[in-house]
Design a protein around this nucleic acid. Structure first.
Length: 882
RNA sequence: GCCCAGGUGGUGGAACGGUAGACACGCAGGUCUCAAAAACCUGUAAGAGUAACAUCUUGUGCGAGUUCAAAUCUCGCCCUGGGCACCA
């Protein structure tokens, strides 16, 4: 026995030689294509999708691996549950990130990407993910972006793409347009804008260019837009029918920002003019005392143009005021204003309300005009105070809750007076709202409307590295106009947003792609045009319809368009039909919608919104048969380092390569998954990874112990824990609680280790021991795929591959313990723990009786004192004396 | 200002009405060794208490409440992280 104990210690000194073993299996998996499902004939398709990365120059960091491993664990789990798992991989390689880095290192994006993609592939293969490497999608490939262009054309044909002048973010440092996501707070960007010393000195609300730290300006440019606002209601309503992480649903709901209200039209005294104001609180309109229009409002323009006559001194005041606004910088949010000289009539009260012109009102929200109800709105109140306008409150009945207003006390001090609207008494705010809106609509004074926070999607980029927008401007052509009429409803055609829409035509589908030419001067120019605008050999063309001289669009599309449909491309990409279509109809209906989408919550209102929109548009065009791309989306958290998001500019990026080399991919995977819950924000520290390496070695040692003889009770003990572990691990993986799944496995391994120590015998292996190892190898497979495969094939001598075997099943009968613990409480405090037969523990009388027999219990309670006994079968008995 | 997610040992975290701190990391002591590393064993919320056990008390950001029983449910605060924000 002593000798065997010694041999156990020796055995425990075995190390899992990850370097050779991991590489060996990675090669064998790829060679045998075990992760490549039969796309056409698969019986139980499961599309397991991870948000594809953009191949950044710094390579993969551990934060990326935290996320991708989370997805991979689930894919491997489902594969072992008998699904034909399709887990593809690709690169979001067209776009501003890639281009910016190429500029920085003075190389073309094409050259730079060839290198970074090769590096990414190598790194991802080292981690041992079960990707189908035969179906790579790369958004900058011609075979991909020709279909992105096709998608653009389809959107245009459906009336969902249009041009208008718009203000865009312009970085004076980089001399280029910036995407919204490139504008960050100085703290996020880690950059201090010019004129400030430290990040802390910069006032709140100022955002900067993530690259150079300059404060972006607004610049008016003519741009292509996608009409996502047409889908606002559906994007909102369909949130109900998808199973997404709740926080992402809430983020989308807020981003769409639907507000129901009414546009009330007021007549302007002594003119034929009217002013329409949007309000969500019409029930308080009896308390309206003024109207404010924005400096850009038509009414203001009419005064400036002297179409509306005002006394000369008023005109001068207004001119002076408008002039002063030009000197106010973007970040100066001080409210100023000037009286317009006119009055609007409140039809509800027949009162005259002075009309003011002020930067208090936003031009592009609602109608650009606001009715001021200072008795019920804090900002209206501030405005009224500042310019000495009257303040009125609307009386509220007992049940009404209309009067939650912070400045109530001030108002009641005598600043204003109360009036009774008759619409509020005894009503809730909603009832009052509906009553007044019905009333106003009947009288023809207003119209129910909804306003949204969501804006149309600005799709043009004055950049080089993206798909050229496949449009042609033909000064002559009328034929396009005809086609345009055929496909688009009249209502959309007369939309004032179109400037010269009737001269734009799409590039015929059969002529796609519009190739992005290889040019040397690909840097952004800073004059509001893309680099392609310097290349007549690119933009000079003939109209495909009338053969007149025409000009190509020289802007490229937003990178989010590339990623808004990539999941449709994956299943088709390796097939023959991929040359002829963006996505094969049949294959698409077999594999989509995506069964599980796994990715970061940071894309909540960008990628995830755009992808839903494009899917709905394609559904309406009858290209696909579903209108939600991701019925199930799991939002994982984000790995943190030293309290901040990992990023190169912060210098806190952790490269996984050295950890993989030193500890192995399995150890790193286990470590990352064990750090905390998948939706958390774990701070990466390498102090614990050695402990995980120890666990991997311990596992390896356990598997290499076969000389184990188990006593009967140990056998029972092991079987019971094994089955419980299978149950727990199965449940935990199903809901992405990987950290507790791993700890359950650790508990099983700890028991095995204890048993191995006391049960070593030479030449005998207990069947229970072997069964346990067999199940353990399969349970560990999603987390440590290499170790599991090595053990499965080389130690347990099972047929290749563990990743294609069945997930272990538990036997509910073996989980039941014959002895269970019952907690004995007195007044809710634990005073004893009884061990008893599980059948007995379910019977109240038996439990109570045995509890009374416990020595020392009378220290806490006497039978005579007990007023009540609470009994939870098999768990608790509580003696209540109070 | 609004919305969301969180506050549990020295650390990451478990438990999410029924033994708070599972599982780890770290630390301390020990075994083995000439020594070290590796491996293994023991201890580890705080306090009281004991020769040593036993045992008790207090503890899940703060304050109330519901309950036989609260980290968990309810209400009100405080703090941290994230998102949105001149949105009428």
């Amino acid at each position: 026995m002593l000798l065997l104990q010694e041999s156990f210690c020796k055995m425990n000194n075995l190390h899992f030689e990850h370097n050779q073993i991991e590489k060996k299996w990675q090669e064998k998996w790829e060679k045998n294509k075990i992760y490549t499902p039969d796309i056409v004939n698969a019986k139980r398709p499961f599309y397991n999708l991870w948000m594809f990365p953009y191949p950044s120059a710094e390579g993969v960091h551990v934060g990326t691996i935290f996320s991708s491993t989370g997805s991979d664990v689930f894919g491997r789990f489902q594969r072992m549950n008998g699904y034909d798992v399709f887990q593809p991989f690709g690169y979001d390689s067209f776009g501003i990130h890639s281009e910016n880095y190429a500029i920085k290192i003075g190389e073309t994006p094409q050259k730079m990407l060839a290198r970074t993609i090769a590096r990414y592939e190598k790194q991802f293969k080292m981690i041992g993910h079960s990707y189908d490497w035969t179906r790579i999608v790369n958004t900058s490939d011609i075979d991909y972006y020709r279909w992105t262009q096709w998608l653009f054309v389809e959107m245009f044909k459906a009336g969902l793409a249009y041009r208008k002048k718009a203000f865009v973010n312009w970085c004076p440092g980089c001399k280029t347009v910036l995407a919204d996501e490139q504008i960050q707070t100085p703290a996020q960007a880690g950059k201090v804008p010019p004129g400030y010393e430290k990040v802390e000195d910069v006032p709140e609300g100022i955002k900067v260019c993530e690259r150079c730290g300059n404060i972006p300006e607004f610049k008016e440019l003519e741009q292509w837009f996608f009409r996502i606002t047409d889908y606002a209601d559906r994007l909102l309503e369909d949130l109900e029918k998808i199973d997404w992480s709740e926080r992402v649903v809430i983020a989308q709901r807020n981003w769409i920002g639907k507000k129901q209200g009414i546009n009330i039209t007021y007549e302007v005294k002594d003119t034929k003019e009217t002013i329409t104001c949007f309000t969500t609180r019409p029930e308080t309109n009896f308390g309206a005392t003024f109207v404010v229009v924005s400096p850009e409002h038509d009414f203001t323009r009419k005064i400036v143009d002297r179409a509306l006559k005002v006394p000369e001194h008023v005109y001068q005041d207004i001119s002076k005021y408008l002039q002063s606004l030009h000197n106010i910088s973007e970040d100066n949010k001080e409210k100023t204003g000037v009286f317009s000289g006119f009055y609007a009539i409140n039809a509800l009260t027949n009162q005259e309300m002075p009309i003011w012109i002020s930067n208090f009102v936003l031009t592009d929200f609602g109608t650009g005009a606001v009715v001021g109800v200072p008795g019920h709105d804090i900002r209206d109140f501030d405005f009224a105070k500042k310019f000495n306008l009257p303040i009125k409150r609307v009386v509220v009945g007992k049940n009404g809750n209309t009067s939650e207003i912070s400045q109530k006390d001030q108002v009641e001090e005598g600043e204003g007076y109360m009036i009774n609207s008759g619409f509020l008494d005894g009503k809730t705010t909603t009832d009052a709202f509906n009553a007044i809106v019905d009333y106003l609509e009947q009288k023809g004074l207003g119209k129910r409307v909804s306003n949204y926070h969501l804006r149309d999607w600005l799709i043009s980029r004055q950049r080089y590295w993206g798909p050229p927008i496949p449009m042609i401007f033909c000064p002559e052509c009328k034929r396009n106009r005809k086609s345009w009429f055929d496909t688009v409803s009249k209502e959309k055609l007369i939309h004032s947003d179109y400037s010269d829409w009737d001269h734009y035509g799409w590039y015929p589908e059969e002529n796609l792609p519009v190739l992005l030419p290889v040019i040397e001067d690909y840097r952004p120019k800073g004059n509001g045009k893309g680099p392609l605008d310097d290349h007549p050999e690119f933009y000079e063309t003939t109209c495909p319809y009338c053969k007149a001289k025409a000009k190509r669009e020289t802007d490229v599309s937003d990178t989010f368009l590339d990623s808004s449909w990539y999941f449709l491309r994956y299943p088709t990409v390796a097939s023959l039909s991929a040359i002829k279509t963006a996505f094969d109809r049949e294959i698409t209906s077999k594999w989509l919608p995506v069964n599980l989408y796994f990715g970061g919550a940071e894309h909540a209102v960008l990628h995830l919104m755009y992808a839903r929109f494009i899917t709905k548009a394609l559904y309406d065009m009858k290209h696909i048969g579903f209108d939600e791309p991701f019925p199930k989306f799991y939002a994982h958290g984000l790995m943190i380092k030293d309290g901040a998001k990992m990023s190169k500019s912060r210098g806190n990026v952790v490269n996984p390569d050295e950890y993989i080399a030193k500890f192995g991919a399995d150890t790193l995977r286990l470590y990352l998954m064990f750090m905390g819950p998948m939706d958390g924000y774990p701070d990466f520290r390498d102090t614990g990874i050695e402990g995980m390496k120890r666990f991997v070695d311990r596992l390896w040692n356990i598997f290499n112990h076969s000389d184990i003889f188990l006593e009967e009770d140990n056998k029972k003990k092991l079987l019971s824990l094994l089955n419980r572990t299978i149950k727990k691990v199965t449940e935990d993986i199903s809901c992405f609680h990987y950290n507790t799944a791993i700890s359950a496995i650790m508990e099983l391994v700890n028991l095995m280790r204890d048993l191995a120590k006391e049960s070593a015998r030479s030449g005998i292996e207990d069947p229970v021991w072997r069964e346990t190892k067999n199940a353990l190898a399969r349970m560990i497979a999603p987390f440590a795929p290499h170790l599991a495969e090595e053990v499965w094939c080389e130690v347990l001598k099972q047929p290749f591959s563990v990743h294609k075997t069945n997930w272990p099943k538990f036997d509910a009968n073996l989980i039941k313990d014959s002895e269970i613990k019952v907690i004995v409480q007195v007044d809710g405090r634990v005073r004893a723990i009884m061990s008893m037969r599980s059948e007995d523990a379910k019977i109240k009388q038996t439990v109570v009786e045995s509890a009374y027999k416990i020595k020392d219990l009378d220290k806490w309670v006497k039978k005579s004192q007990v007023k009540n006994v609470i009994f939870v079968p098999g768990k608790v008995v509580n003696f209540v004396t109070k």
